Simulated scan of single mutants.
Amino acid sequence: MTDLVISGLKKKFGTLQALDDMSFTVHGGEIFGFVGSNGAGKSTTMRIALGVLSADEGEVTLGGKPLDLAARRRVGYMPEERGLYPKMKVGEQLIYLARLHGLSQEEAKDAMERWTDRLGIAARRDDDVQKLSLGNQQRVQLAAALVHDPEVLILDEPFSGLDPVAVNVMSSVLVERAKAGVPVVFSSHQLDLVERLCDRVGIVRNGQMIAEGTIDELRSTPRTLIDVTVADDSTGSWALPLKSHPSVEIEGQEGFTTRVSIPTGDASARSAVVDAAARTGNLTQFRDHHRSLAELFQNVVVTEDPAESDDAKEAAK
C-alpha cells in the first residue's frame, strides 16, 4: 500500500509562522483525521501537498517518492472553498476534470456516470453547478475528487453543509476508498464524525502536530476518569472522605453522578472509590469515562494555550 508522508513542512506568511515542522504519515488503507482550531495550519498543509503553495522547508512524498506535478495527477483533492465552475453543467464539468487527469473521453464519461450515481446526483448531470443546493455542490466536489480514481484523497472540510443522508453517503465512500488501499486524510470541525470514521487522528496547533494516534492512544493519559452514580445523593456527599485521599481527585457532579479521577492503573485508589461509594448502600453505577475526541481536543489545545480556549470550544461543537 502507498503511504502519504508529510515531513518537516515549514511555511511563513510575512511574520506569521503558519507551519512549523509539520510532520505526519497517512498509511495506505487508513483514514486520518486532521483537526485543529481555525488558523492552526490544516489548509496550508493540504495546499502544499497539492502544490498550490510551496513550502519554505520540508517535503511531501507518496510511496516514498516526491509528490511532484506528475504524481499530483494521482491525487484526489477537495478544497474547503468549492473549486467548481458555477456556470458549467455537472456532467460536462466532471468529464472535463477527468480528462485533465489523463482519462480518455469514454473513460471520463463512464467515471462521471458511476460517481454521480454513487453520490445521488445523477439527476443533476445537466444542471449548472450554481443552480444546485450547497449540499449537492459538495457532492459534485467530492465526485470531482474521485472521478479519476485517485491513489490518495486529501479532503478539506468535506462534510461542511451536508445533511445527514449526504453525510452517510460521503462517509461510506471514504471507507470504501480506504478499504481499497487509498490513504485518506480529511480535516473537519465535526469531531464526532472524525471519531467515528478515522483510524488515526492528528491534533494541530500553531502549525505543529501536538498529538497523534488512534482514539484509544489519545485517551491514554496518566489519570483515569470514573463516573460513580449513587442513588439519592445529588450533592456527592458520599465522596467527601475521598478529598483527603492522596491519589483521588473529585472532578465534578452532574445529577446523581460524581466524576472522579485516579492515577491510571492504581488499583488501591480504585478500591478506595468503590469502598466510599458502597458505604452508602445505594451505588448504582461505577464505570470508566472514556473521553470523546471533542474532550481530548479541548484538553490538549487548552492545556497547551489557555488563550485559545474559545477556538477549541468552537471546534469541539
Rank of each mutant, 00 (worst) to 15 (best):
R125T: 15
V52M: 10
L193D: 07
V248I: 06
E92L: 02
N206M: 12
D20G: 04
A55R: 02
R99V: 01
G120W: 03
L193W: 02
G64R: 06
L142I: 00
R47F: 00
R82D: 05
M170K: 08
L84V: 03
A316S: 15
P246E: 10
L9G: 14
E212F: 10
G63K: 01
T61Y: 04
M170W: 04
A276P: 11
G39L: 03
C198P: 05
G207T: 05
V185P: 01
Q141P: 03
N299W: 09
F256D: 13
I210F: 04
E57I: 02
S271L: 11
L97M: 12
G51W: 01
L67V: 04
G83K: 08
N206H: 12
Q208F: 04
L134H: 13
L69S: 13
D232N: 14
E107L: 00
E308V: 12
A178Q: 02
L191E: 07
A307F: 01
S133M: 08
T257C: 07
Q208V: 12
F186S: 08
E314R: 15
S37T: 15
V182K: 10
K317D: 07
E106M: 02
A239L: 12
P150E: 08
S160E: 07
M88N: 06
L146C: 00
D233K: 11
H245I: 06
D128P: 07
E251M: 15
L153D: 05
K179E: 12
L19R: 00
H289K: 12
N282L: 14
E308D: 14
G83E: 03
G207D: 08
A18T: 00
R124N: 11
S187E: 01
I121A: 01
